[in-house]
Design a protein around this nucleic acid. Structure first.
Length: 848
RNA sequence: GCGGACGUGGCGGAAUUGGCAGACGCGCUGGCUUCAGGAGCCAGUGGGAGCAAUCUCGUGAGGGUUCAACUCCCUCCGUCCGCACCA
């Protein structure tokens, strides 16, 4: 047998070129076939190249794309580059190369790697967020936000990373540390462009009902937006018409409210400077609080501190009692109104009152008598719900009954209203860096902030000598006078450009729309848009990405899409959600279950796996490694198993001429069952069904294992009988081999293509129709009936699938071991019969 | 603290959703391929008892429901992830 060994390095290149030449992966605008838009998050093209984690999700979606194409869908499966970002900028600073040069090099490398994996992206639609033709529209979106009052400039205390010298969004701060570099984040007051995502908070929650996202993704988004229903209460200032508004979800505790606590930064303090007798002390406390980083402030063990605002009191609208006003740093300025009313039913309030001797009162009774006593005696704090007391005519009501009643009672007096509050905050959109989209705004002393005229877009990044951010927090762009100084678009007077750039999320807000156009240079946004490219492809049918983007990219892009939809920049017919379905992949960890990282030296480079084992092996391995949505450690030995599997197929097909039939042998069956060529066909059709179903459910691991089972059966027939099946004249039938190669092809496309050709079949394997399984064939005529006694398996017999209980009993009771067990010792009390599955004899001891 | 996921052989993991626990792969053991090698082939492989047929125990721990529980319910232990002074 002088056949060549399986040599993926040789065949894979060849087929990649063949696919490219045939344009088979190109999405067709205007096609009559049903569309299917599959999207996988585009990567940030780092200098490290593709990660095996990228390969996992790309291969998974590639498998779906390939299957959908074979099923006759007009598939859009695009790829591009989210290329603005700090690592590129840092590299550029270090090496003195322009970031665009670095980007070009990195994207070339990523593209090469993706192609080497046989991923079926439509490369003709490739986009790059740093391409001026692309970011022209990123800037256009910003202008529309500005025109619709959703972009505004505000001086706020931002999260400032002292190492990266950059302002961070709340979402980018992890445990008080910079998401990128891990440096402790500081607070800094800075003028920033802000985007009013909060205006969409309710719809971003509500519309989750319209989409098919993994439940955990929905939950995370909801939690992040953090909607809570409550009330806004007015506490009037003693001796004044003024009042302070407080948001609460626990208005049922209003009768126990004995003091008010403001956040240290609350503007009330500035407003009543003159009235506050100890203003110096209060301002000093504010300063200290500001300098306490988030990580220290949220430390649970930290002692509670606070300062009373002497000379100021407010009136509790429920009790009419006078209440002192304090400030404490556990009250957050950004949530609610930045004020809480304090009582004995909140741990922090309780602790604070105890510490400073502020009077406390309770008004909620816990069910448990002991806790009720302790709570009443102010020995411990009760935070739960219960029955009201000390609450006038609301006494006896439960917390949830009381809330709406108290609100309407106070509302009538003009002191309360229903209110929904969100944790979500407006999106800090400014970055003081070079490598980002310039914010297309101009500041004129006379006219204020003016939008760059749309016809002047894009505002291109100018060439600079230094990309280094400055310590003052100014963007490096501010140093380029020629670029900064412009005419005001309104009064034509001297004005200056905004030198901040956009965050790296800006470009990914709308990239799924860019792909709908065959060429980015033809792309166009406009108001009252009815572009058929949008309505042909949108919404995205299936979007896969990382869990880490759930509260960032996924939320942002849903918001921006809704905005574009509202202003008519995308046709209404698409609907208000960009992604129909969202799934998420698990990370690939290093061997031993630790994270892959350069510092640990356990990073697996896909190139080396492709070189040593081949792309198909890598693909099959990454699908077989474990459940797609689960984190999984890399195991180099497992790669070998996938390689063996492919090699086995290669040998099976090429060792023989194409035989006609094969007997069935599945590893679990005895070899005596051989003989039914029908059985082998049956196994094939079962496999076709299983693989198809599993791909849709993203159960790639079990899809691969069912392919393996089929191949094992095939291999046994060829190798372990007295004579190979094909020598006897019955191997795998030609047509069945075709069907098998077709279902294998999404997983191992190169090998399938090669074997398809070598077996003498016409055309490209990946262009064939996805096989249909034969329902009748899959239907089992005979089943293995489980025979149980008292729920324990005692025997298994093969019987006709339609067997009745009577017939089954008759057969089973004749079996020696069953007969003995039952008739000798016990008496049958009851028989449970599950048609097609099992028969169970429930017995009682004869003695009893 | 809150929310979510999870716990099955030496390892990664299967189990039609209440009906054969351990599919498939790795590893290991034995054998075959008239040299060697393995990324080839065959067989075996949860623990215990037995020459064997077979018996028995077994899905983090304990309890419950059921003819029947990896699966459902309760209590506890443990791991991972997300959020975290959110009024």
């Amino acid at each position: 047998m002088n056949m060549a060994k399986y040599n993926p390095q040789k065949i894979e290149k060849k087929w990649q070129e063949a696919w490219y030449k045939s344009s088979i992966f190109k999405a067709k605008n205007g096609s009559k076939n049903k569309k299917f838009y599959l999207l996988v998050e585009f990567p940030y093209p780092s200098g490290d190249g593709l990660h095996v984690g990228h390969c996992r999700s790309y291969t998974a979606l590639d498998i779906i794309a390939r299957k959908k194409r074979m099923q006759g869908f007009n598939v859009l499966f695009p790829m591009g580059w989210d290329a603005f970002g700090l690592p590129t900028e840092n590299y550029a600073i270090k090496k003195g190369v322009h970031p665009s040069v670095v980007t070009k090099k990195n994207t070339d490398n990523f593209r090469r790697q993706m192609k080497s994996l046989g991923l079926s992206f439509d490369w003709s639609r490739e986009i790059n967020t740093t391409d001026p033709k692309y970011y022209k529209w990123t800037q256009w979106i910003f202008l529309q936000l500005f025109k619709n009052n959703l972009a505004y400039k505000d001086k706020i205390a931002i999260n400032w990373c002292p190492k990266d010298k950059i302002g961070l969004a709340n979402e980018e701060v992890i445990n008080g540390k910079c998401e990128r570099c891990g440096a402790k984040v500081e607070k800094r007051d800075k003028e920033q462009w802000m985007i009013k995502i909060t205006k969409y908070a309710d719809r971003l929650i509500e519309d989750l009902n319209l989409v098919d996202y993994l439940e955990k993704i929905k939950i995370q988004q909801k939690d992040w937006i953090g909607e809570s229903h409550g009330a806004l209460i007015k506490f009037s200032l003693e001796g004044s018409e003024e009042f302070i508004e407080v948001f609460t979800t626990r208005i049922d505790t209003i009768f126990s409210g004995t003091f008010l606590i403001l956040s240290p930064g609350h503007n009330f303090i500035d407003k009543y400077k003159n009235k506050i007798e100890n203003i110096d002390e209060v301002l000093k406390y504010r300063e200290t609080a500001k300098n306490t980083s988030d990580i220290d402030r949220t430390n649970q063990d930290k002692d509670i501190t606070g300062v009373e605002l002497k000379g100021i009191t407010v009136k509790n609208p429920a009790t009419n009692e006078e209440m002192p006003v304090w400030t404490a740093d556990f009250v957050l300025e950004q949530y609610g109104t930045g004020v809480v009313f304090a009582d004995a039913h909140d741990k922090r309030d309780f602790k604070m009152a105890k510490k400073y001797g502020i009077p406390l009162r309770t008004s909620i009774k816990p069910e448990n008598e002991l806790s009720a006593q302790k709570a009443k005696n102010l020995e411990e704090c009760f935070e739960g719900e219960g029955a009201l007391y000390n609450s006038m005519h609301f006494d006896g009501l439960t917390s949830s009954e009381a809330r709406p009643k108290i609100i309407s009672w106070l509302r009538e007096k003009g002191y309360a209203e229903n209110k929904i509050s969100y944790k979500l905050r407006d999106w800090v959109f400014s970055r003081q860096h070079y490598w980002g989209e310039p914010i297309p705004m101009i500041f004129c002393v006379k006219c204020g902030w003016q939008a760059v005229l749309e016809k002047n877009l894009p505002v291109e990044l100018p060439k600079v000598k230094k990309y280094q951010p400055t310590d003052t927090g100014e963007s490096p762009l501010s140093a380029i006078e020629k670029w900064v100084n412009v005419k005001c678009p309104k009064c034509k007077g001297p004005a200056k450009r905004e030198t901040d750039t956009m965050p790296n999320w800006a470009g990914s807000n709308w990239y799924y729309l860019a792909y709908t156009m065959p060429k980015i240079s033809n792309f166009k946004f406009q108001i009252s848009n009815s572009a058929k490219e949008f309505s042909q492809w949108m919404p995205v049918d299936w979007y896969n990405g990382g869990m880490e983007h759930t509260t960032l990219h996924l939320l942002y892009s849903r918001f921006i899409f809704k905005f574009l939809w509202d202003i008519g920049a995308v046709p209404k017919i698409i609907g208000a959600e960009p992604y129909k379905k969202r799934t998420s992949h698990g990370m690939i960890l290093g061997e031993g279950g630790i994270k892959m990282s350069k510092s640990k030296g356990n990073v697996i480079n896909p190139d080396s796996v492709v070189k040593q084992y081949g792309a198909d092996t890598l693909r099959v391995y990454e699908m077989f490694i474990g459940p797609f949505e689960q984190m999984i450690p890399w195991d180099i030995k497992g790669v070998v198993g996938s390689r063996r599997f492919l090699e086995k197929i290669y040998n099976l097909v090429l060792k023989k001429a194409i035989p006609a039939k094969i007997p069935t042998v599945s590893p679990s069956r005895t070899r005596d069952e051989v003989g039914a060529e029908e059985n082998f066909k049956k196994l094939l059709h079962k496999t076709i069904k299983k693989v198809g179903d599993d791909i849709e459910a993203m159960k790639f691991n079990t899809a691969v294992s069912s392919l393996m089972e089929f191949v094992n059966a095939w291999s046994i027939a060829e190798n372990s009988l007295d004579k190979p099946a094909s020598d006897k004249g019955y191997g795998l039938a030609k047509k069945d081999l075709q069907e098998f190669l077709k279902i294998l092809s999404p997983f191992a496309p190169h090998l399938s293509e090669e074997l398809w050709q070598r077996a003498g079949f016409k055309g490209l394997c990946c262009a064939q129709k996805w096989p249909k399984y034969d329902e009748k064939l899959i239907e089992e005529k005979n089943i293995l009936l489980i025979v149980q006694i008292n729920g324990k398996v005692r025997d298994k017999i093969e019987v006709n699938a339609g067997i009745t209980q009577k017939q089954a009993e008759e057969i089973v009771l004749k079996l020696e071991k069953i007969k003995n067990r039952i008739t000798n010792i016990k008496e049958v009390e009851k028989v449970v019969f599950v048609p097609g599955k099992l028969i169970n004899f429930v017995t009682i001891d004869k003695d009893k």
